[in-house]
Design a protein around this nucleic acid. Structure first.
Lengths: 206, 206
DNA sequence: GTCTATACTGAGATAGAC
DNA sequence: GTCTATCTCAGTATAGAC
């Protein structure tokens, strides 16, 4: 990894996290990184591939930590049932941990999910991890039908994405201090209740 | 409202809902609508203002129905406490109803939230409604501290946004039939559990 | 192999003729 | 009110210096 590549990745991570992908031009990135425009395409191929590389660099370790935590919890549980809160903890704690050292990256992660851009990137880098966690959720909530389980994980991802990227748009939260780990704790408690909720009756009318 | 304006709005609603805002060019919209490029800027000012107009046209009735439903529930409750499920119902049922007649619009709504674009638009058109609902949530969950309540509403918005726009990226849900009302029922049950969840202890360590 | 300079295409926006 | 022509800036592609 050359110095040029690292300067580009660092700057892209910061600017895209702050402003969003669409709002950040390659020309702004290269200006702040002090490199040439063509260097971006030489090293990364395209703007989208640059984002991909920036994600991969930091998301890899987070997902590894998630899997490691899940391995430990599953081993402790043996053949028995898993606790949904333990599973959520395996998923969110590594993210909270990395946030304590690097706020920039979590912003970028939120952008990726919530700008709706490139499901491919999410797919490519998070799908293996999600597969492991889906299995764990199944073990924690065996009474939940498969389709309902998938939707609940989908809701979880949506709430997480919206929560990660920047301050809330709700008036009372705008000027709240940016304490991401605390934010994640709140989210985890909320999701725990959601996963445990009884299933909605189909076609329910009040 | 001239015929030209309506053709532009209809086409924009459809294309942006299908492809997203960033991926849809004004030139594509005008080609399919059969109008001139400058007409868009003449009538709406900019691409962003066009989106704004498309949202306003359809979101207005939904929010009015939400407020009307909430009025009714609050009147029935009198001075007593509100039921969180009733409040959620007031919020989501109008959206499910409009979906039964017009799938295109819900896609557009999802895009707006989830492309992270223009918080201004969300702010401008949904904030008054959100204000009313925040008060209702407070009445339904009086024991919840204000900050926690605001975050939970934030999580709700994130889950909703992610759910509205297109199919899930989870393997098992990709080819599921697009039954938005059913999707909303599932979401509502999940959120109900989330809102009722006990609060996370600060700095909790397993 | 790395990087610079520069040109190309398509986007949103605008001025002015009609 | 409407449309043509044009402007600026985006992402991209390539030729060639080192």
């Amino acid at each position: 990894m050359t110095e040029t590549q690292e300067k580009i990745l660092d700057t892209a991570e910061r600017l895209i996290g702050e402003q969003g992908y669409a709002a950040t031009s390659l020309r702004q990135i290269i200006a702040e990184a002090g490199v040439n425009l063509a260097a971006v395409h030489y090293h990364f191929g395209s703007k989208e591939d640059l984002l991909d590389a920036a994600v991969v660099r930091k998301a890899g370790p987070v997902n590894e930590a998630r899997i490691a935590a899940l391995d430990r919890v599953e081993q402790e549980a043996g053949e028995g049932q898993l606790d949904i809160d333990d599973v959520l903890d395996c998923f969110f704690r590594p993210m909270a941990d990395v946030t304590r050292r690097n706020q920039k990256f979590v912003r970028l992660m939120g952008r990726i999910y919530s700008e709706g851009l490139m499901p491919q990137i999410v797919q490519k880098h998070f799908q293996p991890t999600m597969g492991r966690f889906l299995a764990a959720f199944r073990r924690a909530l065996p009474e939940l039908p498969e389709e309902e389980l998938l939707w609940r994980v989908h809701f979880m991802v949506g709430a997480m994405a919206h929560t990660m990227c920047g301050p809330s748009s709700l008036p009372g939260l705008m000027d709240a201090p940016v304490d991401i780990p605390r934010r994640i704790e709140r989210l985890q408690a909320f999701l725990s209740g959601g996963f445990r909720a009884p299933i909605a009756a189909a076609g329910e009318k009040k």
